[in-house]
Simulated assay, not measured.
Amino acid sequence: MSELFALLGDPVIDPEEESFIIFSQDVPSQNLGFIDSQAAEVEISIGGRDLTIRQSRGLLTSDRKEGTTGAVWKVTPLFAEWIASPNFLSKHGFLGPDTVAIELGAGVSGIVALTLAPKVKKYIATDQGYVIRLLKHNIAENLPAINTRKPKSKKRTSQPTSESICSIETLELDWELNSVSSLPTQLGLRGEGAGLDLVIACDCIYNESLIEPLNNSFMFGKFLMRS
């Protein structure tokens, strides 16, 4: 872990000054960072693959306290493109064909899972229960487009092959409220050599009240990490 921290460079000495520099830029009003929150579907191209992601206007406009994830954030495709491309994680052996990765707060799109799953051993996408159905739909609808084990069929099908779906799992998890003590059993992380290699959280912090539970989840992930 110390080797990974060294690759990230010098730590931030003054968080307040760093935050001021980052957030003092002008941000267009009425723009929360969505690609297009009004569209029922958005078309996204990542790494030469075309994805069609279904959104939920109902979730976005709901007043539920548990969350309102329902659209694709602009940063998600950018992060997915980066994490799946050659970077310092893959260069130094932290990310590769034997990696077991878990994503906290995957949202409805599954874009990071769809992009990174072909490059790792197993990818577990998690989110709250109200998100899982649409998350599964988007993964299933787009899996044929990322299946690299067989030639791409000219006819699009919504039924992915067992080969293409094997590396992606979905799991209901509210890391703010639910205990994560049962995760090892749910994920099948038992026995010698079992564990997580990578914990991903993209666009999960939009309120300071989420920092502590997210940190606790990361600490739990650290204990599950394979040495």
Results as ranks from 00 to 15, higher is better:
L4M: 13
L8Y: 14
G9V: 01
G9W: 07
I13F: 07
P15D: 11
E17Q: 15
E18S: 03
Q25I: 14
Q25C: 13
D26V: 05
D26C: 00
P28W: 06
P28E: 08
N31Y: 09
N31G: 00
F34V: 04
I35G: 04
D36P: 03
D36V: 06
A39F: 07
I44H: 02
I46N: 06
R49E: 07
R49G: 01
T52H: 12
I53A: 00
Q55V: 06
L59A: 15
D63R: 13
G67A: 13
T68G: 11
T68W: 12
T69L: 12
G70K: 02
V72Y: 10
T76E: 09
T76H: 00
P77Q: 07
P77W: 03
W82G: 03
I83A: 05
I83G: 00
A84N: 03
P86N: 15
N87H: 06
H92M: 05
G93M: 10
F94C: 00
T99I: 11
V100T: 11
V100Q: 00
S109F: 04
S109A: 12
G110W: 01
V112W: 00
T115Q: 07
L116C: 10
L116D: 03
K121R: 10
Y123T: 02
Y123N: 02
Y123P: 02
A125M: 14
Y130V: 02
K136E: 15
I139L: 15
A140S: 13
L143S: 12
A145S: 10
I146S: 06
I146L: 13
R149C: 01
R149E: 10
P151C: 02
S153D: 15
S153T: 12
K154M: 09
R156N: 06
P160C: 08
T161F: 09
I165A: 13
E172A: 03
E176Y: 05
V180H: 07
S181R: 06
S181E: 14
S182W: 01
T185R: 12
T185G: 04
T185M: 06
T185P: 00
G188R: 09
R190G: 06
E192D: 12
E192G: 01
A194D: 07
L198K: 00
I200Q: 02
C204H: 08
N207L: 10
E208H: 14
N216E: 15
F218E: 07
F218T: 10
M219G: 09
K222T: 10
R226V: 03
